[in-house]
């Protein structure tokens, strides 16, 4: 199983390579990628240098161009694909049908991966992308159980990549307008979710309150671990009860089920977190390198490595998420 690591900056890319990532995925510093966060991402020159570093060690770099091009202004997205192709990226990760069509015709030699933002969650959808555009790998949406992933892999010809660790979307990705409903900025259009530009923290009485677009997303008492106010990970009132209605502020951690994922025929494991720091990237990638090596040699996942991942989890707790049926 290939270990695919995130990089929001060149420093994270170097950290990921040093920690044993097989592949690093990244995006350009603009709205063409789904982590268009302030101060993050790569210039073409930085990508070129990153490719040089990775290729020197026989590793790979995938470039995510996975937002949806704007009507009347598709050129920036096409340029991003052209740039990635001309610099020698090992694959581009796309989600838009029009852009996939463009890339497959313009760069027939370029390896195309389907982004999780396309939410191809079943056989007919995957087959569509594979046959229409020659997509070679599909990043599966985070809504499938391990059994469903295994069933899919028995039927599809393309590779599948799944998320192993990091922040979870409880929603089908690429089909969520919650952020734009509250802030006017959307993952699909702007490459941001619950953008920092619309986030405020305020102290109200004893509590720290996090707001998004002026609405309270969460409230933390002294000593309580605080989180970033990502909309779907907030606490709300429904039926008179306060709680994490959509998702707890937890990290996905598939450490316990790696051998099941391997048996399910998964080709690559992806770490979420291009917006996280290089210390995080280094630590998670190193831990997963050890886990994968252990699983590939049919050994047990080292317990201390699993414990180490706990500390890095968002909100300091974790879950196997949608991979288990109970999550639903």
């Amino acid at each position: 199983m290939e270990l695919v690591a995130p990089a929001g900056t060149p420093a994270s890319l170097r950290a990921a390579l040093a920690a044993g990532a097989d592949t690093v995925y990244l995006g350009f510093r603009d709205e063409t990628n789904a982590r268009n966060f302030p101060g993050l991402n790569f210039s073409p020159a930085e990508l070129e240098e990153g490719l040089r570093l990775a290729h020197r060690e026989g590793r790979k770099v995938y470039v995510a161009v996975n937002t949806f091009p704007r009507a009347g202004d598709e050129a920036p997205w096409r340029r991003a694909v052209d740039k990635a192709a001309s610099l020698g990226a090992d694959a581009v990760i796309l989600s838009d049908v029009g852009l996939l069509d463009y890339a497959s015709r313009r760069h027939p030699e370029l390896r195309l991966h389907l982004s999780v933002q396309a939410a191809a969650s079943h056989l007919d959808a995957i087959r569509f992308y594979a046959e229409a555009f020659g997509v070679r790998r599909v990043v599966l949406p985070r809504v499938l159980t391990v059994e469903e992933i295994a069933a899919l892999n028995r039927q599809v010809k393309v590779e599948t990549e799944v998320f192993a660790f990091g922040g979870m979307c409880p929603m089908a990705e690429g089909r969520c307008s919650l952020s734009s409903y509250v802030t006017g900025h959307s993952p699909n259009i702007n490459g941001v979710c619950s953008p920092a530009s619309h986030v405020r923290y305020e102290t109200r009485g004893d509590a720290l309150v996090s707001l998004l677009g002026g609405s309270v997303i969460n409230r933390f008492l002294p000593g309580e671990a605080a989180g970033y106010p990502t909309l779907c990970k907030g606490r709300f009132l429904a039926s008179g009860e306060a709680g994490y209605l959509f998702e707890e502020p937890v990290s996905l951690n598939a450490a316990q089920i790696l051998s099941q994922l391997k048996k399910a025929g998964v080709a690559a494991l992806k770490i979420e977190g291009r917006q996280r720091g290089r210390a995080y990237v280094a630590e998670v990638v190193a831990a997963y390198r050890r886990l994968i090596d252990a699983v590939l040699s049919d050994g047990q996942a080292p317990r201390e490595t699993v414990a180490q991942l706990d500390r890095l989890a968002e909100g300091q707790s974790e879950t196997t998420g949608a991979y288990g049926r109970k999550w639903r």
Binding site: V143, L144, P170, M171, A172, R175, C176, S177, L178, Y181, C232, A238, S239, E241, L245, F246, E247, A322, R325, K326, W327, R328
Partner: peptide, 21 residues
Amino acid sequence: RLPLAISARCFHARAQRLHKD
């Protein structure tokens, strides 16, 4: 009321401490 998101998880059930199944 506009559709904003869809999930494999049932939030209606979750609000009542139930699972989708």
